[in-house]
């Protein structure tokens, strides 16, 4: 009962505050100070307005992302306790190699080396954006990285620590050495295909495993597709490794095109396991091709000889 009455009262007061905020600064400060005492919703910098200080407020001070993403923190700056406009120098620094900038907006290109803060401004703060980009020439190890934004004017200075939590991105690519998605094979014979697995993620992969789907064979004989090595271990980011794929169609494979699919799996799992669909053109084994041609030639020769011997002319 008493709780709902309290909520009702609070709503009324908040409404009153909104209405009054349009009238006059002093009145508003008054009203605010009254509110600060009674309500916990008041921003922190109004907790002790008497002292001159710079206050930082960041709603999301910890951001997480993969090493190749850029991070931006919206930070509100508030100068309290002073009486006049004051110019503050802004500086942001991160771990070495990181690009850290202070900008007005995320999309903006201008860096903000300084900002003017108005102590009389009672509502909100001045918003700046801190951009932090991990180095692109080296994969940043996963972990927490500290970015510090500092504002200073004379003796007055303040800072806020922002945390970039770099998480690992597990990703790899997988393609044939030549980039072509077709290969040739001969029935009953092994043919080789080299595929290249490259870690395009931001963390090493413990294991990459391979599997394949085969066209249906004839009789008990099946297509055989083997990988050598049959799994990769500890593939570091940016590293690539070759895998030799041995494809052996059954001896009684009818010539033509067959689709095989080479699949991968990894540990840790990635969002997408790349796979390759490869068209295998099975040609006649040269032996049987020649024998076939030989039979035709033999028949024709037999016909000619037959005509010569048995005919009259």
């Amino acid at each position: 009962m008493s709780k709902s009455i309290l909520a009702c009262l609070m709503t009324c007061l908040l409404l009153c505050a909104v209405v009054f905020s349009g009238l006059a600064n002093t009145q508003l400060v008054m009203a605010k100070s009254e509110e600060a005492n009674s309500l916990p919703l008041i921003p922190p910098w109004q907790a002790s307005p008497s002292e001159e200080e710079i206050q930082f407020n960041c709603k999301y001070p910890i951001q997480s992302g993969t090493a190749d993403s850029s991070f931006s923190f919206d930070v509100d700056l508030k100068y309290v306790g002073g009486e006049e406009l004051q110019l503050f120098d802004l500086s942001a620094e991160g771990p070495s190699g990181w690009l850290v900038r202070v900008q007005q907006t995320v999309a903006g290109t201008k860096e903000l080396p300084a900002v003017v803060l108005d102590p009389t401004q009672t509502y909100g703060g001045e918003k700046v954006v801190v951009i932090a980009i991990p180095p692109y020439w080296v994969i940043t190890e996963p972990g927490d990285y500290n970015i510090r934004l500092q504002a200073a004017s004379g003796n007055l200075e303040g800072s806020i620590d922002l945390t970039v939590r770099v998480t690992a991105r597990y990703e790899f690519e997988f393609e044939t050495e030549t980039g072509l998605l077709n290969t040739k094979a001969t029935a009953g014979k092994e043919s080789h295909l080299t595929i290249v697995v490259s870690n395009t993620g931001t963390a090493s992969l413990d294991k990459v495993m391979f599997s394949s789907s085969k066209p249906s064979g004839i009789g008990d004989e099946r297509w055989s597709i083997t990988f050598k090595p049959d799994e990769l271990e500890g593939l570091k980011p940016m590293e690539e490794q070759e895998v030799d794929v041995t494809i052996k169609p059954p001896a009684k494979t009818i010539t033509g095109d067959y689709m095989i699919t080479l699949r991968t799996n990894s540990d840790p799992l990635t969002s997408r396991s790349p796979e390759l669909k490869i068209r295998v053109t099975v040609g006649t084994s040269t032996k049987w091709g020649w024998i076939g041609a030989g039979i035709i030639v033999a028949v024709i020769a037999g016909l000619v000889v037959g005509f010569r011997k048995l005919g009259r002319k």
Partner: peptide, 22 residues
């Protein structure tokens, strides 16, 4: 017989050449 055997042999040879399965 000559014709039958020739036709079968030609067809067989051709088939062997094309499908490659002996």
């Amino acid at each position: 017989s000559f014709m039958v055997v020739s036709v079968i042999a030609i067809v067989g040879g051709l088939g062997l050449r094309i499908i490659g399965v002996p």
